[in-house]
Design a protein around this nucleic acid. Sequence first.
DNA 1: CGTAAATTTGAGAGCCGTCAAAACATGTGG
DNA 2: CCACATGTTTTGACGGCTCTCAAATTTACG
Lengths: 234, 234
Amino acid sequence: MTNTHDVAHPCGKCAFYKESVWQPVEAGGMGVLARGFTRKPLIANQVVFAQDTESQGIFCVSAGLVALRTHNPNGTSTLLRLAYPGDVIGFRSFLANAKHKTEARALLPSRVCIVAHRDANKVVRGNPAVLERLAARCISEIDTNHERIIATATTSNKQRLFDLLQRLMATHGERVNAHMRMQLPLSRSDLADLIGVQPETMSRLFTRLRHDGAFVVSGREVQMPVASGDRNAG
Amino acid sequence: MTNTHDVAHPCGKCAFYKESVWQPVEAGGMGVLARGFTRKPLIANQVVFAQDTESQGIFCVSAGLVALRTHNPNGTSTLLRLAYPGDVIGFRSFLANAKHKTEARALLPSRVCIVAHRDANKVVRGNPAVLERLAARCISEIDTNHERIIATATTSNKQRLFDLLQRLMATHGERVNAHMRMQLPLSRSDLADLIGVQPETMSRLFTRLRHDGAFVVSGREVQMPVASGDRNAG
DNA sequence: CGTAAATTTGAGAGCCGTCAAAACATGTGG
DNA sequence: CCACATGTTTTGACGGCTCTCAAATTTACG
């Protein structure tokens, strides 16, 4: 039998503990939380959950990078979100008690922490503060989606790719002299699915950005001048 | 002093009572809920809440049609959502305790029910079931946004306009012989903001749809054959 | 080294943005 | 009822971008 009164918080040593949706769980629910908790390492390309499968619980990315993608009926796919450490995924299906509408797949070697569905349910029902934090994640997802809808409607594909590469560089890049350099975590095809164009167009967008002098690109290696953050892709 | 034990539920007679986010409120919280409750009629074009203003509470559309729009820095605007009776709006700013990122404006003569911020807060904190229902609305908003992002990425503007007109017809149209007929609740300009194109392009999209025989259009009056629901705009 | 997969390049057609002007609708005052 | 002013919608012209299909090239990896 598990001793509930001296179980350590399973997220206690995580760098994102303070912001964790599970942080508000106290002694009473800790046993259940600890029982449902799993840590799972992922190799690049490994699927975390597949589209149209039942929710296994709530996932939290603790290392690496996970892509959320929907496979469309017509064979195409759309990248809806990149999930970084600290991000919670799979909460939509969990809260709606429905099947996943997206597939989650690691783009880099990663790790996720999982709280199994049954236990997550118990913890959430016993602890409104957890539900509040989940709601906050929903709101943040809504904000991100709105930004994307607005960006798609108001800025050019080239500009949006420029902005995306900037953000990726801020996360994945390292400074080398007067340049930032990164290894792109996404294929051209995934970038196309993220911007919403065909792969051929993505290739041409790269050509144009390179021609503008915004980037030096070779395969997945990308360099940009440090100061170019405020430049406009036209 | 208000008598809390015999106050009727303010949404009790609403057609959407069962699905109301306030439905779970019981005797204990009813006094607070009733105190914060207001019903407000709106004339066409009236603003419910303005962008960048503080949350006044949680709004529920009880009649008419309300558009949620963001005014972009560059002077353009984007229509993010059409809210119909039963829909809850303003919950993003409420839950995030932040300013509205969108403007809500009635497109038709409408009515909203408002639970003032302070009282809504008390009710939500005292009643996790309400928070659960709010979370469900968040999820539904996320689903809608995902659908829109996917549609934008995978289907043509013409097809999306076709689909939109179909949906509007289902809601606002009435059958006349073998046709459906409606009065469009949106200007060409608003339609453009919803599909994400320029007004000139919207006009040309109408020309093309009319030319295809999908619709008969004259100003805001639109007719379509009853059976055309399953047709494809090519 | 060779095969499969990913990426780039080419050509052509169609769609959209922009600017400008015309047509149409709406409301006001005479 | 007309004349007029204002705001909305449509049309025209043109350049630029994206899609599609096809082929060439490069990269990844056994």
